[in-house]
Each structure stands twice: as C-alpha cells, then as structure tokens.
Design a protein around this nucleic acid. Structure first.
Length: 652
RNA sequence: GCUAGCGUAGCUCAAUCGGCAGAGCAGCUGAUUUGUAAUCAGCAGGUUGUGGGUUCAAGUCCCUCCGCUAGCUCCA
C-alpha cells in the first residue's frame, strides 16, 4: 500500500505498483497526457519512474506550466539534438549534454567542424525526430555491462566517464529513443513531442571535463520552449538585451573607446565617460573619508622583488606584463595588485595597536595580461582601476571591519539602484592543501564571515566551498551583464598570507608591549571602475541618473531669434554648476529634441518667444516629456535637488 | 591561449554566379527661422583589416597574419 500526498493535501492510495503518470491517470486523462515529469519528495523524476510500493510519498505532477518541467524538456531537447547530429555526421562521440539557463548544450567529438551553416539541417532533423514523437525509455544496467555497451557503441568518452566519473556507482542509467541510446541520469519527458519550439543558437569549443590540456570538443548551444510564442519572446528579450551592450552604447554615447594602436583591453575614457567616472570617484572618496579611510597615492610599478615577496611573481607570471629590465639589471613590474604598495605604506613606520584598524585607500591602476580570448569591452580588460583599500586590523576587529566593508558595498550598489546582485561567500576546500594559515584560523574566519553575512541578510547569499583565494575567505558581489554572464564587482577578502612571516611579516605593538601580527582585509566596492561603469551602462541602458549624466541639461532655442536669451540661460545653469550645453543649430525644435533624446540628455530646456518674454524656460524631461514652463531659478533648484539625492528615476 | 564565426565610408548596412564599390545616418556648405522625437538641396567621405596567391578580371575564391565576437580554459 502506497499513500501519495498531492500538493492540494489530498491523498491517494494505491495497492499496486504505480508511476507518477498512473497517478495522473487516476486524476484524469488530460492530466495524464499533460504530465511531463514529477517531483517526488522534492526530487524531479520521470513521469514513468516507478514509485515505491509501500509507505508515503509527496508527489507533484509537473506539466508545461512548471519551470522544473522546462528544464527536463530542455535536457530531452539536448538528446534530440545529439540524435540529429549522429544521424547527419559520421563518427560522433558524445560527451555531456546538460540543461543550462534558458536552454541546453551538447558536447561532441567529431572530425568535421560544425558551423552555423549546418544548423538548418540539424534543426530540420530535430524537427523530424520531434514529429516522430518516440518515447524516451530508461534502461538501468550494472556498471560493467554499461561499459561494454558504451564500448560497443564506440562511445569512448562515455566509457571513460563510467570508469572514472561514475566509479562509485553500481548501476548506471541510459535513455533510449529509437536508434539513439545515451548514458544519462535523466529524467526526460515521456516523448520527444513535448519539445514544442527550439532553436540552435551557437557553436563553440569546449574542453573535455573542463581541462584545457584535454582535447577540445564542439559544443552546440540551443534553446527550447513549450511554445513558439515563448521561443519568440525569449529571442526578442535577447535582442533587446543586446541593445544595452555597453560596448555598443559606449561607442554611441562616446563614453570610452579601445584602439589597437594603444592595445587590446586598454580603455581610453572619452570626455563623457570620464565625467561618469569622476562623479563616481568623488562619491566614493566622500564615503571613504566618512568611513575612516585614509587615501594614499602609490606608483603603478614596483620592483620585481616586491612581488616575489608578495608571491604574485612568478606565480601569476603568465597573466602579467613581463618585467621591465633596466640597464643595471634592476627589474620593475607593472603592478598587478596594489596591496604590496599599501603594505609598504603600513611598514613606513612602527605601528601600535592604537593605529588599528588602519584603512588605506587608493583608486589604484593595475595591469594584468589577460588572455586575448577573455577580453570584453570594459568588463574584462588588461588595465583597470580598483577602488582598492587595505584594512590592517587585529583578529578581534575582523568581524566589525568585514561588516563595515559589506555595508559600504551594499550602500554603493543601492545608491545606484543596482539591486539585482547576489553575494557569493567563498570558503576553502577542506580537502586541499593549497591554503595558507592554520585550519583553526580558517574555521574561525569563515564562521565569523558567515555570521556577519547572515546577520546582514545579504541577497541571494550562497556559500561556495573551495572558491576561496589561497590566502583567505572572501565575499564577492556578483552582477549579470546584458548577455546573462555573471561578473564579480565588489569584493571583500580576508588575507592571512601577506602579513605573515613568509611574506611581509607585518607587526604592530600590542597593549602588552609585544609584537603581534595584524590581519589584512582587501576590499573594493566597485571592483574595478572600468567593469563597474561597463555594468552601469548596461544597467541604465546608457541613461544615467542626473548626477552621473555627462550632459545633464541642454538648452534648445526654438529659433535663432531666441539665441541670446537661451545663451544667458545656459550661462546661468553653468554658473549653478550644472553640466549644460546649448543647441543653436538652424534646425526645427523637433529635430533638436530628437537629438537630445537620442543622446539620452536627462533634461531639455526649450526656449522660444514665450519664455523670453516671461523670463522662464519650458522644461522637458527625457522620461516624462514636457513639464511646462517655470522660472530659470526654479528649474535649477529642481535639477540640483535631483542631483543631491542621487535619484534613480525610471519610466513610471 | 583554444574552437567557431565575422572584418566594406565615422556609424548601420547593400553589392546576384567572380564583371564599373553603393545607400541611409553622422560630417561639411548653402537655403530655411522653425514650439516638444527627423526642413530641403548640394558636397565630401574607400588601397573593401594586412600581406600574398588563383584569374582576363577578386569586396566576393585560396593561404598568412592582425583585429573583433561568442563559448571554453583562466581570473591574485
């Protein structure tokens, strides 16, 4: 006897062995047909997987309405794609084919390169398979037999995976669909007909098991949905997101440029982009001072020895610009990190516990030679400015300082209306020996950090075991770009390494008149100004809040007859400290408005005969349109108020 | 770095089968004097990323290099 609890709290009883699809039939034939998978005690399984004979389970039948079913269907779509590829190409070896956000991929090993030109015929073959609507059949085999089966199928990658990756499994499962059989954990939808709309998206290289020294496979990405409408909506969303691309907007709005004459991954901030950056810098410096940081300035190069001491050289030599060698043999490194310089500032005099916590801040320009394939606009570059600071404190102060750093980072993100972020708390992998410091210290630090994070109720907090830097645990603030890629912005990292005896042997004199070792915290709320501004451009789709806008307001003269008065108004706004320009071209007012709208100028002041007579301006808001006439001083006060509050306005 | 794709005017793109490199926007000049998202006309703008090859003829086909894009690997 099996008791099946359904989400509506009703209970069904079965004396025979049943599957979720049988439970669905019991409720109704339409539900049975719509059931694509099931969630049994919280685990997603296939609709035809047998439920236990005895006891009680809670069961949720999953249909096209449930997001879990979408993931199951996409996994099935990956199989269908693999089946199509195997029908069309000779000697295809299958690797892995999982579901990912918004779609799926499958990795193949085959001699012939697949290109996008092959997509139509693969898609056509997939459509045929979906049309045939054959069932997915689960087959469970003992491990040894599975190895033989895969070997017979010529699937050597799968053989390797069963031997190594699944070494601890007694049995493994396959899914068969017609002539196609694939090692797979499942689950799958009942049959291919559940895949209603799909599209291949791209082909790329991928390494077998993520190992760059292993052979490279061909990865085919696709997306699949339960309706053509959903698919079209998705493709449209992707297109719209691409219009926010900071590389496109950065060029259109003249914010930054990259030129191979200077070098790949090296950002040239154009005047308008420089305004945004300068405003952010002013903002961040104000915060730093308020929060007890002391700005310092240090050089962008340092002797190689310094980085040997810090351990950055030669450990990261592959991703550094090689040292500059002088005639006398002295070698200098373009700094990849600011910390050694700040440590040198710390060491510039003996420190007492009364100096701690010592918070040294600098917008520090660093250079790293990132691999060419990694470079991406302002987001992944070879020269960038960290809004860096290093806090030197006692063990007891770590939690408070850590909290202060998180608080500042949150404050910065909130001020900019960036609330779609997640926080990743990276801890060590206890089974690895690559970490500095004793396990006890790590445990204590990790516990303290997690406690602070929980107490601050950070959004989407997740703990990532094994993601810590070798020198200490860290908390990263992660934001997605317009293509859905996640990037680290702000970061707060504990460091037991650099202060240690092995490295810089930092000390302070304690109340006991004896030397003690300080702890270091690295922190950067923006991460890098380059990446942060890149993300901001995408976040605002180029339409910055007033306080950041390169051009805050533009005076538009209705005709040249009113130019003199308009110029007076422009002068008055400039005097008031606003970033203002004037459009005095012999154009119609509609054309001037259009230019200003396209250039995303937040406010326009239209000036014609009426305004000149009455000494007013007609204010046009980029978002809301015409706001009507008001006095010049009233308009200035309105804008200044919005700047003071750093308001983030969106279309209402 | 690896795999694949793409490089045509400042920008967005066109150029059939290999057959005279073109359009819109931006720019410049002139006319127009304008009331809330594009006034009209003219002019100028190119070694088709680079170097080589095939051909009577190359933007188009082949090779090299450079750059860009996506993904993979990396990210102190």
């Amino acid at each position: 006897m099996l008791k099946v609890k359904l989400p509506d709290a009703s209970v069904l009883e079965f004396s025979r062995r049943v599957r979720p699809v049988d439970v669905a039939s019991q409720i109704g034939p339409r539900l049975a047909r719509a059931t694509l998978a099931a969630e049994v005690d919280g685990t997603v399984v296939g609709a035809d997987s047998a439920l236990p004979e005895e006891g009680e389970v809670s069961l949720r039948l999953l249909t096209a309405k449930d997001p879990e079913a979408l993931a199951v269907m996409r996994h099935s779509a990956a199989h269908v794609m693999a089946r199509a590829v195997m029908r069309l190409f000779e000697g295809v070896q299958l690797a892995f084919g999982p579901t990912v956000d918004n779609g799926f991929y499958y990795d193949f090993l085959l001699d012939k390169p697949i290109s996008e030109a092959d997509f139509p015929k693969i898609e056509a073959e997939m459509a045929r398979i979906v049309q045939e609507d054959e069932p997915f059949e689960r087959i469970v085999e003992p491990r040894e037999k599975a190895i033989v089966l895969c070997a017979d199928l010529g699937q050597t990658l799968k053989v390797e995976h069963i031997r190594e990756g699944l070494a601890d499994q007694e049995t493994v499962s396959f899914y068969r669909q017609g002539e196609f059989i694939d090692l797979c954990r499942g689950p799958h939808v009942p049959s291919a007909g559940a895949i209603k709309a799909f599209k291949l998206l791209s082909v790329a290289g991928a390494y077998w098991k993520g190992d760059a020294s292993a052979q490279q496979l061909q990865r085919l990405y696709g997306t699949a949905w339960f309706s053509k409408q959903d698919l079209d909506d998705y493709l449209k969303r992707v297109e719209e997101a691409k219009r926010r691309d900071h590389r496109v907007l950065g060029k259109q709005l003249e914010l930054f440029t990259v030129d191979q004459a200077v070098g790949a991954g090296l950002i040239l901030w154009l005047p308008k982009g420089a305004v945004v950056r300068r405003e952010l810098e002013t903002f961040i410096y104000g915060e730093l001072i308020q929060r007890g940081y002391q700005p310092v300035y240090t050089p962008v190069i340092g002797r190689v020895q310094l980085y040997e001491t810090s351990g950055h050289y030669p450990y990261y030599a592959d991703s550094q610009f090689p040292p500059i060698e002088m005639q006398d043999g002295d070698r200098y490194l373009l700094r990849p990190m600011n910390c050694p310089h700040h440590i040198t500032v710390y060491k510039s005099k003996p420190r007492s516990y009364r100096d701690l916590p010592l918070r040294l801040a600098e917008l520090g320009l660093v250079h790293r030679f990132e691999q060419s394939g990694e470079l991406s606009g302002m987001i992944r570059v070879r020269g960038f400015t960290q809004d860096d600071a290093h806090i030197f404190c006692t063990d007891d102060q770590v939690a408070d300082e850590f909290r202060g750093c998180l608080d500042m980072t949150q404050f910065v993100l909130k001020t900019l209306g960036l609330d779609d972020y997640r926080v990743r708390l990276s801890f060590r992998d206890p089974s690895s020996s690559k970490y500095v410091g004793s396990p006890e210290t790590w445990d204590r630090a990790e516990a303290a950090l997690e406690a602070v994070c929980r107490e601050m109720s950070l959004p989407n907090l997740q703990v990532a075991q094994g993601e810590a830097a070798f020198y200490g645990p860290k908390a990263d603030f992660i934001v997605g770009d317009c293509l859905g890629r996640d990037w680290q912005l702000g970061t707060v990292q504990l460091d037991y390494n650099l202060p240690s005896e092995l490295r810089f042997a930092l000390e302070y004199i304690g109340p006991d008149n004896r030397p003690h070792r300080p702890v270091m915290i690295h922190r950067a709320p923006f991460g890098s100004l380059e990446r942060f501004v890149g993300m901001l451009i995408e976040h605002f789709a180029g339409a910055f809040p007033l306080w950041l806008a390169p051009e805050q307001v533009r005076v538009l003269a209705v005709s040249e007859k009113f130019e003199d008065y308009a110029r007076q108004v422009q002068g008055r706004l400039a005097e008031a400290g606003l970033r203002v320009s004037g459009d005095y071209r012999p154009e119609k007012i509609g054309a001037k408005i259009r230019s200003a709208q396209i250039e995303l100028v937040p406010y326009m002041l239209v000036i014609g005969g009426r305004e000149m007579e009455q000494g007013t301006v007609a204010v046009r808001d980029r978002i809301e349109g015409d706001l009507g006439a008001m006095g010049v001083e009233a308009a200035i006060e309105k804008l200044k108020q919005e700047i003071r509050t750093k308001a983030v306005r969106k279309k209402s």
